[in-house]
Amino acid sequence: MSLDDLWYLADEADQQAEQAYHRLRERHDGFLERRHEKHVSRGRFRTLASRIRERGTPYGAHTIVHRPGGDLLLVRHEGVDMWVLPGGEVDPGESFREAARRELAEEAGVEATYEGLGVLGRVEVRTGGYDTWGVLPVYAARADPEGPTPRPRDPDGEISEARWFTELPADTRDRDILREWRRRRGV
């Protein structure tokens, strides 16, 4: 794809993102909205814009899993060397929620009751004179406090550990989102 084609790719991605955004807003309420901007290389821009064009999201769907006492479930992602929310790419024919549930099972080995959309992220991606955006749906789900100990079964081998946290570890990605979500929930 030539650089001139990036404009068309970005435009198609924008259209898909807009549709995904409106579908999520129509189906859910009471969620936190966040905006994040990423400046990336042209190659990375092409990759993310292609993902957005296909499914509306550059990074898939994720889940904030909590227990009644306020503990949050995080997984250790070796690729970024941080504790993150379980989640990942959306497979063809899969809804965002289905992807979030599948990724939770793979990355943490736990089941949870999905409560709805917790956070609707808008990820703006830029490189040079090109830009596009995609959604980042993060669902909220409640786990049984007596449920199984989290154990990753990640087929990609990126997740090395899954654990409950009362206090977020220092190397937690998206700390501000998790703190705001907890504050709004009174947890």
Rank of each mutant, 00 (worst) to 15 (best):
T127R: 02
L120H: 05
E115I: 02
I177Y: 03
L168N: 04
H62N: 13
M82E: 15
V75S: 09
L6H: 06
W133G: 00
G116N: 05
R153K: 08
H66A: 09
G43R: 15
R53C: 07
G56S: 06
V65I: 15
D29P: 00
V138Y: 04
Y21I: 05
A108L: 07
D29T: 13
H36V: 10
E161C: 01
R163I: 00
V110S: 04
E158C: 00
L117S: 07
R46W: 03
M1Y: 03
W83K: 11
H39W: 06
F31A: 08
E89D: 14
Q19W: 09
R175P: 01
D11E: 15
L3N: 03
V119E: 14
A61N: 03
P68V: 12
A99R: 03
P150D: 12
H77R: 15
S41A: 12
E89H: 09
T149I: 04
F96G: 02
H77L: 09
A13Y: 01
R179Q: 14
W164M: 12
G60L: 03
A162F: 12
P150I: 10
V123S: 07
Y59E: 15
R27P: 00
W133C: 01
L32C: 03
W181K: 02
G186S: 08
G129T: 10
D29S: 15
